[in-house]
């Protein structure tokens, strides 16, 4: 039989355990706390399940092959659909499914059909191309609307070419994109993050070359 005191004790113990438990849960969450405006970890679903892991990781295509503006412009740029077509006018599906169709065609003694994967079909649709890679009459080409992952506020002017030409590696800001199935914002892209890098490289240089990274407000804000 419990006295009033022991009831209190039990309650205290239960509450304490509860508190410790929820604290433990919360601490784990603390790391995930973002102040408003911080979009670190943002990884939106894209209209086409384009895999950077495959293209940049496995196939070792250079970043600047597609993002060609990075060297010359403030925007690295999203490649035009025509750039995709440089390869994908020939590569229309995975090697596996093309071979399987070849096998099947051989068995059925017919010419192999052109295999088109669902994702790549979206590129052809966007260009209004038919299976023979010819323009479909009556169809209007419509560009692919990618979702921007790395968004800076409108009052910040970032210039890719200034950084690329100073040998700042792409992954310094974008992380190991070549491992990402879907691109994710790795860094928090806050002003402090930018400024600290600018401060550091003025001492350390980039890849052994001394640089002069501006710390003026007007380097980014105007």
């Amino acid at each position: 039989m419990l006295t009033r005191d022991s009831k209190l004790q039990t309650l205290t113990v239960v509450l304490l355990i509860g508190a410790v438990f929820s604290l433990a849960t919360l601490v784990a969450r603390l790391g995930a706390f973002h102040i408003p405006g911080n979009q670190q970890g943002y990884a939106p679903e894209q209209p086409i399940a384009f895999s950077h892991r495959l293209h940049a990781g496995e196939l070792l295509i250079d970043c600047k092959y597609c993002h060609s503006g990075a060297e010359t412009s403030r925007h690295a740029g999203i490649p035009a659909t025509s750039v995709c077509m440089n390869c994908h006018s020939i590569v229309t599906d995975t090697l596996g499914s093309i071979r399987a169709e070849d096998e099947l065609a051989k068995e059925e003694k017919r010419t192999a059909r052109r295999m088109v994967s669902g994702e790549l079909q979206k590129i052809y649709d966007s260009l209004a191309l038919d299976e023979e890679m010819k323009t479909k009459p009556g169809k209007v080409p419509k560009p692919i609307e990618w979702i921007k992952v790395h968004n800076l506020p409108d009052f910040v002017y970032f210039n890719h070419s200034a950084h690329v030409s100073m040998n700042v590696a792409c992954d310094r800001c974008h992380g190991a994109v070549e491992t990402m199935e879907r691109v994710r914002q790795v860094e928090d892209l806050s002003m402090g993050w930018c400024v600290n890098c600018h401060r550091t490289v003025n001492h350390t240089g980039i890849a052994g070359t001394p640089v002069d990274a501006s710390l003026d407000c007007a380097a980014c804000h105007y």
Binding site: I35, D188, M191, W193, V195
Partner: peptide, 17 residues
């Protein structure tokens, strides 16, 4: 006025600014 707290020194992610 909604940014009046910028007049106070507090830790921030601006570098800090």
């Amino acid at each position: 006025p909604w940014l009046a707290h910028w007049m106070a020194p507090y830790p921030n992610t601006r570098g800090p600014l």
